[in-house]
Design a protein around this nucleic acid. Sequence first.
DNA 1: TTATTAAGAAACCGTTCGGTTGCAAATATA
DNA 2: TATATTTGCAACCGAACGGTTTCTTAATAA
Lengths: 105, 105
Amino acid sequence: MRRDVFQGIADPTRRAIIALIALQAMTPNAIAENFNTTRQAVSKHLRILTECDLVKQEYQGREIYYSLQIEKMKEIDKWLDQYRKIWESRFNTLDNILSTLKKKK
Amino acid sequence: MRRDVFQGIADPTRRAIIALIALQAMTPNAIAENFNTTRQAVSKHLRILTECDLVKQEYQGREIYYSLQIEKMKEIDKWLDQYRKIWESRFNTLDNILSTLKKKK
DNA sequence: TTATTAAGAAACCGTTCGGTTGCAAATATA
DNA sequence: TATATTTGCAACCGAACGGTTTCTTAATAA
């Protein structure tokens, strides 16, 4: 199954999971306690997040700690960069001014 | 149908469309010429992009010009901000150093 | 050893997705 | 006016998604 970061962050529950484990590693059970859903549903999301390398696992006995692979988030930032150039440009500012004038008219 | 930006950018074809119309407005036909797919498929993507406000339409006779609503892209940037803080932090840098040392070992 | 607990795997279900084909409406052109 | 063009809409299809329930495996605790 081909996965990429953008598919990983597409689901709101997965974004919530990402936020949860961004600062500290957590087990699937601990993560699932934060949602009104079954552990298996969370487990599936973790699988998808793992498949697109947004998350890494650390085995500790029978428990598995999941944590965010922050490096992968930079990919989104890198993709955004081309558009950041646009919205920071003078042309866009000018465009905003023009459309503001239009509205007033 | 509830849509958000993250769903909008989830599909690779839609990201390509976004890149195409980022700098200049284009009609569905003109956009479709850039893909090995039917005009209707592109039209569906444009519909989704419109629903999540990533794209705006401008009617000109029977033609409709689609262009990127760059403001909406800032939402992704804003969401990324919380993670940018993490990957730019000293703690993370330290973590990188540690894992580099681990690999060398 | 025997329960118990943590987690993944498999099967299933309804919905959405991405795509196609076909059609209707509106505008432009002969 | 008749015809061609641009576009959106509806119906349909197979695959993937998000979720549940059930089962298996492996590690811990009694």
